[in-house]
């Protein structure tokens, strides 16, 4: 438990240290938004769409669709979105295996590095 805590503290510390370093290098307008780069922020980003999704599903009950598709139910668009997205992402791996070749495959060199 303590170990975990110290690990978290360490992570936090390194985040802070990194941010301090970045603050010097970063664009002045970007300074207030450096927290976006924190790991915790990125990890917890998931809650933003989750909350949004829940709200819109609820609102979907308030505003029923005027034109219904045969497959429509109350959260159908959410399901479509989630499934379609996941399908695309999961298809990436096999597709990559199937289609990816070395960058110099056509013998024209890799463009722009």
């Amino acid at each position: 438990m303590a170990k975990q805590k110290s690990k978290m503290a360490k992570a936090k510390l390194s985040d802070e240290a990194r941010e301090a370093k970045e603050r010097v290098e970063a664009h002045p307008m970007a300074v207030p938004f450096l927290w976006l780069g924190r790991k915790s922020v990125q990890d917890n980003f998931i809650f933003l769409p989750l909350i949004g999704l829940i709200i819109t599903i609820v609102l979907g009950l308030v505003f029923p669709p005027e034109h219904e598709a045969p497959w429509d139910f109350f959260a159908s668009w959410a399901v479509i979105g989630f499934c379609a997205y996941s399908a695309v992402v999961f298809s990436a791996e096999p597709l990559f295996k199937l289609l990816a070749r070395d960058e110099n495959y056509y013998g024209e060199g890799s463009d722009n590095g």
Binding site: I46, L48, P49, L50, G52, L53, T56, I57, L59, G60, V62, F63, P65, A75, W77, A78, V79, I80, G81, F82, A84, Y85, S86, V89
Partner: peptide, 14 residues
């Protein structure tokens, strides 16, 4: 609402 549903779901999936 439904457009947002779709987009939020996609973001959630991501």
């Amino acid at each position: 609402v439904f457009q947002l549903q779709l987009l939020f779901a996609a973001m959630l999936a991501f």
